[in-house]
C-alpha cells in the first residue's frame, strides 16, 4: 500500500517544530506501525537525513515506551492497542496519516516524537509504593486477599505508564495514571498503612508537575491501551477527599 505521512519534526527541546510530509510506496499490511516507520527511517538515513526519533522498546505492548499520536488519537485508531501493536492492515491504501508526539504541558518534547515523561516517575516517588524493606516480609499466604479484590487490583495495576491518558485529555490530566496506582494499593491489605499519605502525596505532585484536573471527558479511558477504567478516577476523588479530611484524626 501507498501512504502519505505528515510527521512532527523538531530538532530539540529549544527549537520550534513543524509537520513534514513523506511518501511511502511499499507498505505491507503485516507490518506493525513502528516497522513502517523503520522503513521510512532506513530511507532517510540512506539519503543522509535525520531519521524520525520516537520512543519504543519492547514492541509487544507492555513497556509503555511508544508514545505517538496518530491521526489525533494517542496510539492510533485501534482500541486497547499500543502503537507498537498497531498493524498496517488497519489503514487503507492511499491514506494520509498524521503523526505527532504526545502533547501535554507536563510532557515537553525532547525531539520529534520523543517526549519527557519523567513527571510520572516523580509522582511515583511521592507514594507509589508500599514501604517494605527487603527481607521484612511475612509468609505470602499469611495475607489472604479475596479473589475479587486481587482481580480489581490487577485491573488497575495493568497500567503501562505510557501517558496516552494525559495526551488524550483536553486538560492534560494524569488522573487515570494516578488513580490506577492509588487504587491498586487501596484495594490490598498491604496498602492500608500508608493509604492516606499515598494519595495526598501523589495528587500533590501531580498538580505540581502541571497536569490538569479531570472534568469527566473520559477520553483517557478511550485512549488507554490497557482499558483502565475511569471508575478508578471516581474512587481516587473519594480516596483523596477522605484522606484530606481525616489525615489528622485518630
Amino acid at each position: 500500500m501507498k501512504l502519505k505521512l505528515n510527521i512532527w519534526r523538531q530538532k530539540n527541546a529549544k527549537t520550534d517544530g513543524k509537520m513534514t510530509s513523506y511518501q511511502l510506496n511499499h507498505v505491507e499490511e503485516d507490518m506493525s506501525f513502528l516497522e513502517m516507520l523503520d522503513i521510512l527511517n532506513e530511507d532517510l538515513i540512506l539519503k543522509g537525513d535525520d531519521p524520525v526519533a520516537f520512543d519504543h522498546d519492547c514492541r509487544e505492548g507492555i513497556c509503555g515506551a511508544c508514545s505517538m499520536t496518530i491521526n489525533g488519537t494517542p496510539h492510533g485508531p485501534e482500541k486497547e492497542t499500543t502503537t507498537c501493536q498497531l498493524h498496517m492492515r488497519k489503514f487503507k491504501d492511499g491514506q494520509t496519516i498524521n503523526i505527532e508526539p504526545f502533547r501535554a504541558k507536563a510532557f515537553p518534547v525532547i525531539k520529534d516524537l520523543v517526549v519527557d515523561r519523567n513527571a510520572f516517575d516523580r509522582i511515583m516517588q511521592k507514594g507509589g509504593y508500599i514501604s517494605v524493606r527487603t527481607g521484612q516480609a511475612q509468609d505470602a499466604n499469611n495475607i489472604p486477599i479475596s479473589k475479587k479484590n486481587a482481580d480489581l487490583a490487577m485491573d488497575a495495576a495493568a497500567c503501562i505508564g505510557c501517558g496516552a491518558c494525559v495526551a488524550a485529555c483536553p486538560n492534560g490530566a494524569a488522573m487515570l495514571f494516578v488513580s490506577a496506582k492509588v487504587n491498586q494499593f487501596a484495594l490490598l491489605p498491604q496498602g492500608q498503612i500508608e493509604r492516606k499519605e499515598r494519595v495526598i502525596g501523589m495528587v500533590n505532585q501531580m498538580e505540581a508537575e502541571g497536569f490538569g484536573a479531570c472534568t469527566n471527558h473520559f477520553e483517557c479511558e478511550a485512549a488507554c491501551p490497557k482499558s483502565i477504567s475511569v471508575k478508578f478516577i471516581a474512587k481516587l476523588n473519594t480516596e483523596y477527599l477522605k484522606a484530606t479530611l481525616t489525615k489528622n484524626s485518630f
Binding site: I130, V132, A137, Q138, A140, I145, A150, L188
Partner: peptide
C-alpha cells in the same frame, strides 16, 4: 520463597484462588 513473600508485601497482585490464597 523469600521472593514471593517480598513481592506480595510490595502489593504485587498475584493471581488468587477463591479462598484468598495464592
Amino acid at each position: 520463597r523469600n521472593i514471593i513473600d517480598q513481592c506480595v508485601a510490595q502489593g504485587v497482585p498475584f493471581a488468587r484462588e477463591y479462598g484468598g490464597l495464592l
